[in-house]
Write a protein that binds this DNA or RNA. Structure first.
Lengths: 210, 210
DNA sequence: TTACATATATTACTTTAGTCATTTTTTCTG
DNA sequence: CAGAAAAAATGACTAAAGTAATATATGTAA
């Protein structure tokens, strides 16, 4: 039997959710809370498998509560529930490490499916939510392609610069003389049309060489 | 009626999928292909709403095909189908902009749900897939908190260094003398226990100051 | 007001980075 | 093997970065 804690400040919504959840005979709502703080207190007294938290609650909101619960009860799975598909909320929740994020206007089956999936280590994202959040996450992933005229040696040096090494350290690591490293660095600066190693380091990081 | 193109090299699997998909009376498989190239050719002749592509196919794989289809037929929604939940594949597919990524061992309903969701602009990620890929994407998002002992001025200078400015440029931008900028930089180096401005630039970027 | 802290500036100095012309060494290729 | 091409090294130089001690203004709390 899956024990669920339901935290939601609007009583009617909470009762509706409880009824929805308990249509499944493997799941049981064994705790209810009006806000995040109450949810945390309840978790200290009772054992739950899954906590379903509304994002917007008085006193302590869902994100805060999730953060606390994640650190104190690592095995507890957390599902966020909201009417808003606000990007920032989604990001925050994902960073905390919740097991799912669903909109309240979802249907009974998907809520139940999410609870069961959370137990198995899955992460439930409703399709509209995923469609919003994944492109957002990918933004930081994109990297412009690195200048192809750089030789492997030059790339190696550029990488070292991106790690913050000075010329002597680079020379040691690559088995070159300091003078050679300087010369190569000049070459790289030339090819990339940059001015100094600081700009090279920035370039290296932005192009994910390091 | 939703018109679906099904690209999958194993005939039996393809027929199985077709049967599964067509249990829904709103969806119809109006095209079948053995590989990515054929899929592209078919799309040039016929109009489809959704293309379901196997990742692994001879001649042209699903990712390649997806790339081509996305650029030539922007309104066509693409779902990737695979037996492997390989991280790299998922990333590649998401970067191309597919509308979903599902494992072949999924059930009929979820496949149909994904097709319908794709039409509406959703992005279907099975829970196991999302659980793998989202933490991966978040990795690059994390930023350690910046040293709180830095003064606002020092932060401003650090930011400038992170943009690749030299001391003269920083002095101009902030209305200081070059000497002051140097002194402040020394201060920052001291506080952050770093050695030179290159390492400062790296710090600035990693901490999302720039 | 005194005294103290803070921010900025100045000066003089050392070290590192970067440029450039030239040479040496290595590697490849006919 | 000869000779060209590429990679690495040298040395001499300039410019920029970084250090450190000290000076000057400005505001603020005792």
């Amino acid at each position: 039997m899956i024990k669920v804690l339901l935290a939601e400040d609007q009583v009617m919504v909470r009762q509706g959710l409880k009824a929805m959840i308990e249509t499944d005979e493997e799941i049981e709502v064994t705790g209810e809370a009006d806000n995040g703080r109450q949810a945390v207190v309840l978790c200290e007294k009772q054992l739950f498998d899954v906590a379903v938290l509304d994002i917007r609650m008085p006193e302590m909101d869902g994100i805060e509560a999730a953060k606390v619960l994640r650190s104190r009860f690592p095995h507890l799975k957390i599902l966020m529930l909201t009417t808003f598909d606000d990007n920032q909320y989604i990001m925050d929740a994902l960073k905390v490490g919740v097991s799912g994020y669903m909109l309240k206007d979802g249907d009974t089956e998907s809520l139940i499916r999410s609870i069961k999936s959370a137990i198995k280590g899955g992460l439930s994202l409703q399709d509209q939510v995923a469609a919003k959040v994944v492109p957002e996450l990918l933004k930081t992933e994109e990297q412009e392609s690195i200048d192809p005229t750089l030789t492997p040696r030059e790339r190696a040096i550029l990488k070292c610069i991106g790690e913050g090494l000075n010329n002597r350290e680079i020379a040691e690591r690559l088995g070159l003389s300091v003078g050679t490293v300087k010369n190569q660095t000049s070459q790289i600066l030339d090819k990339l049309a940059l001015r100094d190693r600081t700009q090279l380091a920035i370039y290296a990081i932005r192009h994910r060489l390091v």
